[in-house]
Write a protein that binds this DNA or RNA. Structure first.
Lengths: 347, 347
DNA sequence: CTGAAAGCGCTTACAG
DNA sequence: CTGAAAGCGCTTACAG
């Protein structure tokens, strides 16, 4: 005999009583409860997860599906762990375990998710790196399992998501540069297929349009999350009939390569080329001149996602404001010295 | 009626047959199997995880416990995701799910682990950041659940671990510096309580002793995983009666701060101070002069850990060479220009 | 090759 | 406040 039955026998009570005592059911005599709790503690007993889940119909766990591609996992810009920190704290406070579920880039992410969902392995799910068209969202909706995505998608319609305010960031950056006198503003966009790339690029176009500036496809540079992906675009930016005088970076780490290439050409960031980075990062903080960028708290992003999920889960929903939550997290500008009026003085 | 029962009824077979077909039991008529498989596929049916685990006594999942502290999760030096990449690939190939289990620094890591273990939530466990004395190891041993640690510990005795060859790295670095003529060699060590700090420091002492060099406690600098933690130690290193002429860095990112401070003082890395970094990192790769460092593959480390675990798990052990595996993964030196003969020419 | 039935270790109405 | 018993959804000897 093992598990709860063994504990019950040793204590001379029924398994029902042990179960109630352990689960905080109020209908248990105080002395009995203490006896049970003490014994469980002493013997290191905890209810078997599988049996518990089967009986209760809930797992008390939440999955966070992330995709592993070598480019990002080994990047200095990898930021999901900071987000996990916030998620974990909120979920733990509500008695939920966070299971980070890594899906290899090489396997189909739909099938991967489907397995966890159809097996009932989690009570809720957080998805990252949403695509513009993302079948995972419809999968989650038809599964009935509460979920929230980190990032928007055109799929699914009215579901909960948390995303960064790319539009706000871009508007602020372009406003600032235009205010400094720039007219030829370039941009880098991620070279992967996540939806944020599309959103960032669209916000760029919209912001230019707001200022009556022409959109030039040749000023849009897809880059990877790599320091050296910045350097190679500098020449293309400057050596043209109408050179760009400013650039907005999706991956701020690429500033490192840009600074190097500028230095090689005897040029100075902020004077010969204005640079604004998207997400202020540790690895870039030590560049001189300091990169003008946008700041955000990664744990706060995780916290927001976890809350949006809890608001949908049966056990926790009552404590949260109801319904679907769709929120863009604003970022604040951190002025540096990497931008300023164009050297040519064009205005 | 739901789950397997519903599927069975629809197909006009017993649940036993459905179960066998789905689990690849050979004792199933081919036509029957195909019928079942087709229906399961069509209806998106997958066996309930909890029921399956309860009946089988195994979860087909492996946990990787990592500790979240804000310093490391937001560091550009965070490297566990690269390791996860390798783990996940190996485990998936053997039909095992990898659950990354984040434990907040603020909660007790022993209790955290105990919950997952005593509940039977995983079939195997990988532990990171082992301490010199680490009660988790005895916990795992008494649980009977296969486990492997990323990092050594004095606890537990003969269990499986994978660790980096800190001794080899240190010996190579010191040999190289001594060969260049250095006699006063400083070192940075991590300021946390993980065992690798102790090992690194001990290897430093041993390597000095091998060359008959005196150990000077004042040349040992605890640092965090932060770029700016390098700069502050430069002055202490140089402004003393017998200045250090070389330094070996545990966290290579701190080289960034060191380079900056040296530049401020009009000094040159590799000439006025020789620098060797431990783990070659993306964020440091663009420093000039290039930092001499040691290279390793993060996914390979994960692969090794996963294999060491599989070798202990009942279902997979037969395919692996048996027994306890304790392995130090070697790193290879990548020469840069950040070290060389001391400027004073002392020999 | 297939089915009826027991059993995995819990939780929870139900009855007292 | 407590216990006997059913039930959660599977898997797997056992019998045929």
């Amino acid at each position: 005999m093992r598990g709860i039955a063994r504990l019950a026998r040793e204590l001379g009570v029924s398994t029902a009583t042990v179960s109630r005592a352990l689960n905080g059911n109020p209908n248990v005599n105080k002395a009995t409860r203490e006896k049970v709790l003490e014994a469980a503690q002493r013997l290191g007993y905890a209810a078997n997860q599988a049996a518990r889940s089967l009986a209760q119909g809930v797992t008390h766990s939440v999955g966070f599906m992330i995709e592993l591609d070598h480019e990002s996992t080994t990047s200095t810009d990898y930021f999901f762990m900071g987000v996990v920190e916030g998620m974990q704290a909120v979920l733990a406070a509500h008695g939920l375990d966070l299971l980070v579920l890594p899906c290899a880039k090489s396997q189909d992410n739909f099938t991967f998710l489907q397995r966890f969902v159809s097996r009932g392995a989690v009570d809720g799910m957080i998805l990252a790196e949403t695509r513009r068209i993302d079948r995972r969202i419809e999968l989650m909706q038809s599964s009935g399992i509460p979920f929230v995505t980190l990032g928007r998608s055109d799929s699914g319609g009215g579901y909960s998501w948390i995303d960064l305010d790319f539009e706000g960031v871009m508007a602020t950056a372009v406003d600032r540069l235009v205010g400094q006198g720039h007219r030829r503003i370039a941009v880098t966009v991620p070279s992967n297929d996540a939806n944020y790339g599309t959103i960032f690029a669209q916000a760029y176009q919209d912001s230019l349009a707001r200022h009556g500036l022409a959109f030039d496809e040749e000023l849009v540079f897809p880059t990877r999350r790599r320091e050296d992906d910045g350097g190679s675009l500098v020449d293309g930016l400057l050596d043209r009939p109408d050179p760009a005088t400013a650039i907005i970076l999706f991956y701020e780490v690429t500033a490192i390569g840009i600074y190097r290439r500028l230095a090689e050409r005897g040029l100075t960031p902020g004077r010969d080329l204005s640079i604004i980075g998207f997400r202020g990062e540790e690895s870039v903080r030590f560049l001189a001149p300091q990169v003008t960028c946008f700041h955000m708290s990664l744990p706060d992003l995780g916290t927001a996602a976890a809350r949006a999920l809890l608001a949908q889960m049966p056990l926790t929903a009552p404590a949260f404001s109801s319904g679907v939550l769709q929120r863009r997290v604003p970022l604040s500008l951190v002025p540096g010295e990497s931008d300023g009026p164009p050297a040519s003085g064009v205005r």
